[in-house]
Simulated assay, not measured.
Amino acid sequence: MLIALTEKLYVAPQISVDTVTEAAGLGVSLIINNRPEGESADQTPGDTIEAAAKAEGLAYSAIPVTHAGFAPWQIDALDEALNGLGDGKALLYCRSGTRSTLLWALSRARAGDDVETVGQTARSAGYDIASIRQIMDALAAEAGK
Results as ranks from 00 to 15, higher is better:
1 M>Y: 12
2 L>E: 00
3 I>H: 05
4 A>P: 05
4 A>S: 15
4 A>M: 07
6 T>L: 06
8 K>P: 09
9 L>N: 10
9 L>R: 09
9 L>I: 15
12 A>P: 00
12 A>S: 13
12 A>I: 04
14 Q>E: 10
14 Q>N: 07
17 V>L: 07
17 V>I: 08
18 D>A: 13
19 T>P: 06
19 T>W: 09
19 T>V: 11
20 V>A: 00
21 T>S: 13
22 E>D: 13
24 A>N: 01
24 A>F: 08
26 L>T: 01
26 L>K: 12
28 V>P: 04
29 S>T: 15
31 I>D: 04
32 I>D: 02
34 N>K: 04
35 R>I: 00
36 P>A: 08
37 E>M: 11
38 G>H: 07
38 G>P: 02
39 E>C: 01
40 S>V: 14
40 S>W: 10
41 A>E: 12
41 A>H: 13
41 A>L: 12
41 A>I: 09
41 A>C: 04
42 D>H: 15
43 Q>A: 10
43 Q>Y: 14
44 T>C: 10
45 P>F: 08
45 P>M: 09
46 G>F: 02
46 G>C: 03
46 G>D: 02
46 G>Y: 02
47 D>W: 13
48 T>G: 06
49 I>A: 06
50 E>T: 11
51 A>N: 05
51 A>I: 05
52 A>N: 00
53 A>F: 10
53 A>P: 01
54 K>I: 10
54 K>R: 11
57 G>Y: 02
58 L>S: 05
58 L>C: 03
59 A>C: 10
60 Y>F: 15
61 S>A: 13
62 A>D: 06
63 I>F: 00
65 V>G: 01
67 H>I: 14
69 G>Y: 00
70 F>I: 07
71 A>E: 14
71 A>H: 12
72 P>F: 09
72 P>A: 09
73 W>V: 14
74 Q>E: 08
75 I>Y: 06
76 D>V: 10
78 L>V: 03
80 E>F: 11
83 N>W: 08
83 N>R: 10
83 N>K: 11
83 N>H: 09
84 G>D: 04
84 G>F: 00
85 L>K: 03
85 L>M: 05
87 D>E: 13
87 D>L: 09
89 K>G: 02
91 L>E: 00
93 Y>G: 05
93 Y>A: 01
94 C>R: 03
96 S>Y: 01
96 S>E: 06
97 G>F: 07
98 T>K: 13
102 L>I: 02
102 L>F: 02
103 L>D: 02
103 L>W: 01
104 W>C: 00
106 L>A: 01
109 A>Q: 03
110 R>L: 04
111 A>S: 15
111 A>I: 06
112 G>N: 02
112 G>A: 04
113 D>F: 12
113 D>Y: 15
113 D>V: 11
115 V>K: 03
116 E>V: 14
116 E>K: 11
117 T>Q: 15
117 T>D: 12
118 V>M: 07
119 G>D: 07
120 Q>F: 11
120 Q>V: 12
121 T>Q: 10
122 A>K: 01
124 S>L: 14
124 S>E: 14
126 G>I: 05
128 D>N: 12
129 I>H: 05
134 Q>L: 15
135 I>V: 14
135 I>N: 14
136 M>Q: 08
136 M>N: 01
136 M>F: 07
137 D>Q: 14
139 L>Q: 11
139 L>F: 11
140 A>I: 01
145 K>I: 15
